[in-house]
Amino acid sequence: MKKIVCFLLLFLSFLLFPFLPVNDGTQVASLSEESPETVSPHYPLVIDTYDANGTPVQTTFQRAPQRIIVDEVNALETLLILGQGERIVGAALSTSGVSYARLQREYPEEFAKVEPVIQNSIGREQAVALQPDFILAWKASFTPRWYGNTAWWQERGVNTYVIATANHVLKDATVEDECKFIDDMGRIFDRKAQTDALLRDIRAELHVDEATMRGREQQTVLVVEVGEGDILNYDEGWVVGDMVRRLGGRIPLTSKYIGEEELISCDPDVIFVTYNDAYGKTFAENFFRAVRFNSLRAVQNDRIHFVPVEYVYTPAFKILDGIRAIRRGLYPDE
């Protein structure tokens, strides 16, 4: 009997060896072993990001992350483009939208490497079980309902990165802020050549666009998302607002939500309507076909444009698609 007990104790100690205890009893995996692929003179690396309260903080990376939890489509796509699929142990996003299907279609090999933990949300207990060393997410995800506080993870040796252009972490987000996210991902994963090429394309396109639009009459624009209730308004404090401004437009309304009467009273030259999936697009199209909107100039001139939300909200590698969609809507004859 004693031999059996000793054997069981030895077996349990072997199982628990990879884990480091923390002061509240929660276990987070130790990731001290370093492979030749992740040891690089590029590290250690200090990145400026934000905590769960939206306060600026710095995070130090001793190497490229090996076990990643990631939130939302565009952040996941960024990692797939940078070749990090096999390091993703959890991805929290809707699997019913057109964006999810697009990722599977456009990145089949890299997407296949992602461990099958794709769902709408990941709670803290499940996140702990996934043994991450890096969590890339929106500020809204670092709440008690989901991952918990960023400080809780940092104390346990798990780096976190809050995407600043989501959830109004930044009061006035710009294209440059989105470029910083792209650059940070290139630095964190030591893929600067890829991200630098995209950043050059973004800045070159904006330079050409701004030069072309200079001196033209400013157009009024609304970027909205419609649903069963009020209309969500993307004002100039969002990245898409900066795109509109750089391309010669102006978003006159500043409220987060607007009603139908306010939309009709504003009567913008152009309306961009975002959607998440096929149902959302159909709903939005039918919404603006209603007779009550017939007086709108955008309706009369066929200047209502439907764009995937991933083009305009924390767009990351989709930012060029967003810029081009806004430009086409503002200047359809060019």
Rank of each mutant, 00 (worst) to 15 (best):
R105E: 04
R250F: 05
D230T: 08
D333C: 02
E210I: 08
F189R: 15
G83I: 03
E72I: 04
D242N: 14
Q58V: 03
L15R: 11
R292M: 13
F134I: 08
G54D: 03
K281N: 13
S40I: 00
A91V: 09
I326H: 01
F14R: 07
T254R: 15
Q131P: 01
M1D: 10
S94T: 06
G329H: 09
R292N: 12
A52D: 14
H42I: 01
T212W: 08
T314Y: 00
C6F: 10
E115R: 15
V239R: 05
R87T: 07
G259S: 14
D201G: 02
V239Q: 04
D51H: 05
F111D: 03
V98Y: 00
A316H: 07
R303V: 04
V239A: 09
K171T: 11
G322H: 06
G148M: 06
A298Y: 03
V117K: 13
Y161H: 14
W152C: 09
D51E: 04
K192Y: 01
R328A: 15
D321F: 08
L103F: 07
S13M: 14
E110Q: 14
V312Y: 06
R187L: 09
F306T: 08
S121W: 12
V89K: 06
I319S: 03
G229Q: 11
K318P: 00
T212D: 14
V223D: 02
I323Q: 04
A278Q: 15
A298I: 07
F288Y: 07
Q218F: 00
Q300F: 01
G54Q: 07
I118F: 02
V114Y: 04
I68C: 02
D235S: 15
D51R: 11
V117H: 11
G123K: 05
I163W: 07
H207I: 00
D196S: 13
F272V: 11
V22N: 14
P65Q: 10
I202D: 07
H42R: 10
V273Y: 09
N23R: 11
G157R: 08
E334Y: 10
D51A: 08
D51V: 03
G54Y: 01
E205Q: 14
Y275Q: 07
S32Y: 10
A137G: 02
E77C: 07
I182E: 10
S32F: 10
Q219W: 01
I326L: 09
R216E: 05
P116S: 10
C179W: 02
E236A: 13
C266I: 10
D24E: 09
G148E: 02
K180W: 05
S32K: 13
P332Q: 05
R327P: 01
A140L: 06
I69D: 11
D267S: 13
G186V: 01
A316S: 12
A101E: 06
F7K: 09
L82G: 04
W146P: 00
